[in-house]
Design a binder for these strands. Structure first.
Lengths: 303, 303
DNA sequence: TCACTCTTGAAAGATATTTTCACAACCGTC
DNA sequence: GACGGTTGTGAAAATATCTTTCAAGAGTGA
């Protein structure tokens, strides 16, 4: 059965507010962005303000502040404010926000390693916090019972798709990752109810990926989108939307880098989820695949 | 004239609310005690209530609720509520130490997400800590000046290799990821000094990957191994060894999962390092590849 | 340029909070 | 046990805050 994507990211956000702001920022208007930025930059300060206060601070109107709160997933400003207070309390008591400068051209290699590792850790945390477990559960259910699974991704996302396909094959599911858009579409029209199609696109607007998903959707397959832009075109044809985190990008660190990390976490979650659901058949399949590879390793030599 | 009740406890309380309630209870009237008790017993629940709601819950009136808030040191109920929200958030974040456990078959999906994210974060930290920056620097130098770069990986490592190849191609280097062992070997014998060969294998003993690296090594290419077993056979033929972390694996979470995370971090480090070294040519190449993809995105739809 | 949609804030409308005020309950005293 | 005074309480008015509406302005594509 299909669910209708209502545009609002489902439940009130817990702690991943900064990440959510980043994810949703592109779909915001200028004024709303100003509000969102203010909120992300200083949760504690904003929690102390009334709608009117925050509107003045950001040079916008109350209406805009309320609109922003809505977009971030809260029923209204009051609830955003409450969440902000919670966030502020956590920040204060908890961890110091480790300073994380952009990677610079002249950074020594050790700094590059440290910054990269930190950024990716951050991306993982953001993804985990922003992932809608209800959608994830639904996606897992669909996959666990799927007759056939087609996965679409191009560019960097193609590798993520292949990773997922490899994993699903290992537990005995019939999965195939496409990266040729033409073949993907011609295969998609073969799908029907009981099959699952997965589109992976960070931008949410990659035509080569949307087209096969659209075709699969039209033919009655259950469709899943793994995207950083849940409001993007791809979501039109997705029964279940899994949102990946959007990290700030810099010249040296393209968005593709963190989106890959985020996508892989989602893929892993899907895989583990499906393994759990189909444990009876998955466990022996995993064991068998492990066994099959054992003889391909040459004996260890130690220098 | 105002009804002034400002208890001697002047400043807004931080987290010691329960204690404060106990301290102040004797000086409270019966109704106020009921309110204070409710608040102390369930901060989170009360944070969700309006004055009217809390008044009803405790069988008192709004005025009493406000008076209680004042006595507790807040300017009014609104501020008490904000503090309550903060408290609730702290409590909630406090109880989440279960993530260190292995992922179990019956874990709810939310736990799976949390545990996976945590594990991968750990893997990243371990990798960053264990990476030899001298070796990394040497590898970067070799890549930056390479005439041609061949990458070998099979299975999950194949995807990592492809990721690296994609990245290096983007900055104008000539890189190719092989996953067919035969073709890899036949190509490897074409390499010579000035070329670079990279083998990616978690076990360090994957014959299909060692063979081409061996061939490349013999023919004078600079060889790099990305492996979780620096003492494995693959290292015999590697000029530079980059060590990836080995996370504990469980039945549900195969080693391939964390080794991939670790390998990707290494790959990212290599990429950034090479980009830095070749910035003059890499920057415009990156910009061009970005540009080239721009038109492949369909226009955004906003609901 | 025109027609169009999207964005925005002013102000009206709805809620929530605070204050006021009158009355009930209690307490000690005569 | 009735009386004056004090204290505790909630209903309702007053205020502050939040939400919605709506029309004008900004931006956009033909």
């Amino acid at each position: 059965m299909k669910e209708i994507f209502t545009g609002d990211t489902a439940p009130p956000a817990p702690a991943a507010l900064a990440a959510k702001v980043r994810t949703l920022a592109p779909s915001m208007t200028r004024s709303m962005q100003r509000v969102a930025e203010a909120v992300a930059a200083d949760p504690a300060g904003c929690a102390a303000l009334t709608v009117t206060g925050l509107a003045e601070l950001t040079g916008t109107s109350e209406a805009t502040v309320v609109r922003t709160a809505r977009l971030l997933g809260y029923p209204g400003y009051r609830d955003l404010r409450l969440a902000l207070a919670g966030l502020a309390a956590q920040q204060q008591s908890g961890r110091a926000p480790a300073v994380t400068a952009d990677i610079a051209v002249d950074d020594p290699i050790a700094d590059v390693v440290a910054k990269l590792a930190y950024d990716e850790q951050q991306t993982l945390a953001d993804t985990a916090a922003g992932l809608d477990t209800v959608q994830l559960g639904a996606a897992v259910s669909a996959l666990a019972g799927a007759r056939r699974i087609d996965i679409y991704g191009v560019g960097a996302s193609s590798l993520v798709g292949q990773d997922l396909a490899q994993k699903l094959l290992r537990i005995g599911l019939i999965a195939h990752a496409h990266n040729d858009p033409h073949l993907a579409v011609t295969n998609a029209v073969q799908l029907r109810s009981g099959d699952v199609a997965i589109a992976i696109t960070h931008s949410g607007s990659t035509g080569d990926v949307i087209e096969p998903l659209h075709a699969a959707f039209e033919h009655g397959a259950t469709t899943i989108a793994i995207t950083g832009r849940p409001d993007g075109p791809v979501s039109q044809y997705a029964d279940h939307i899994l949102t990946t985190a959007t990290a700030r990008e810099s010249e040296l660190r393209p968005a593709a880098m963190s989106s890959r990390t985020s996508q892989l976490l989602v893929v892993d979650c899907l895989f583990i989820g499906v393994t759990q659901r189909t444990y009876e058949s998955a466990a022996p399949a995993l064991a068998a695949s492990y066994e099959a590879l054992a003889h391909r390793h040459t004996p260890r030599t130690r220098k």
